[in-house]
């Protein structure tokens, strides 16, 4: 009987070369990822620096520097402008309305998509992605065209280029994000819990209301804030469907556009900073109270 050859095949790498290779691997990952993070932070820093520069400029020219710093920085100037104040109020109200309506639609839709199999489900899923992938201007144009046809045409005058158009344009995109969030929320809730509730004597609606909804509350919070933030950033559809009329259909994103158009960069940056603050607030709320692992 011949003896078995037990020599190890090939050659082992040296521990040093392996360590070096691993270090290079992680360094490459960190550099690629880090560049993007730096870009985000640099953008925000640039806005802030621009603001500080402008403020210092006005401070230098004023005999009372502290008062000037408080009153004449671009944000205070913007806040003092009634047009901007109107735009802030309209943004707050329209975004909140759009987010509430989105949630009302997203909860049942997300639940159906998460729990039930029905004919055409894949098609419905794809249709829900349309507002996410469609160019924003096309959403606005499509809304505008839709309101040429009955029954929408009957209310054309009270909606198109009026305040309701702002909410509808914001809702039509924000809702798709809310639906995705709610579907993911319901996917993470064990369907066994509802089944147990049903065996305990609940109707489907009772099981949904008493067992599923309370567990989905964090997801609903996330869906609401995401829809709100999305509505706040909406611009393309608004421009086409609601117009950009000052003191009428002007929201914060429109303000940035209008200020830029008249060459008032300070004003545009100031309004942008107000929006950045709102967006950061939304992010904090989502991180603190919302679900963490939402996949869109």
């Amino acid at each position: 009987m011949g003896s078995i050859d037990q020599r190890e095949y090939g050659r082992r790498r040296s521990p040093e070369s392996l360590r070096l290779s691993n270090t290079i691997f992680y360094a490459a990952l960190s550099i690629i990822g880090g560049t993007y993070v730096l870009l985000i932070i640099a953008m925000l820093l640039a806005d802030a620096t621009f603001m500080v520069d402008e403020t210092l400029h006005s401070v230098a020219q004023s005999p009372t520097p502290w008062q000037a710093a408080l009153r004449e920085n671009p944000v205070s100037t913007a806040l003092a402008d009634p047009k901007i104040r109107y735009s802030i109020w309209l943004s707050l109200i329209s975004c909140t309305l759009a987010a509430v309506i989105s949630l009302v639609v997203a909860v049942p839709m997300g639940y159906l998509l998460s729990r039930h199999q029905f004919p055409g489900k894949r098609l419905l899923d794809a249709v829900l992605d349309i507002p996410i992938v469609l160019p924003p201007l096309v959403v606005g144009l499509s809304l505008l065209i839709l309101f040429q046809f009955p029954p929408f045409a009957w209310v054309n005058r009270t909606i198109v280029y009026q305040v309701p158009a702002v909410v509808i344009a914001q809702f039509s995109v924000a809702c798709a994000f809310a639906v995705r969030t709610m579907k993911s929320t319901f996917d993470h809730i064990d369907p066994r819990c509802e089944q147990v509730a049903v065996t305990l004597g609940c109707s489907r609606a009772q099981a949904f209301g008493r067992v599923v909804l309370p567990e989905a509350s964090r997801g609903m919070m996330t869906a609401f804030t995401l829809a709100w933030a999305r509505a706040l950033g909406e611009f393309g559809p608004l421009l086409i469907f609601a117009g950009a009329t000052r003191m009428k259909t002007e929201v914060l994103s429109t303000s940035v556009f209008l200020e830029m158009n008249v060459g008032n960069i300070e004003g545009a940056v100031a309004v942008s900073l107000i929006m950045v603050t709102a967006a950061i607030l939304v992010l904090v709320i989502t991180r603190v109270w919302g679900v963490r692992d939402v996949t869109l």
Partner: peptide, 15 residues
């Protein structure tokens, strides 16, 4: 809901 069966699933599935 009307069968009147008590059900204990594998992982408890508590609320």
């Amino acid at each position: 809901a009307v069968r009147g069966i008590g059900y204990v699933p594998q992982d408890g599935a508590l609320f």
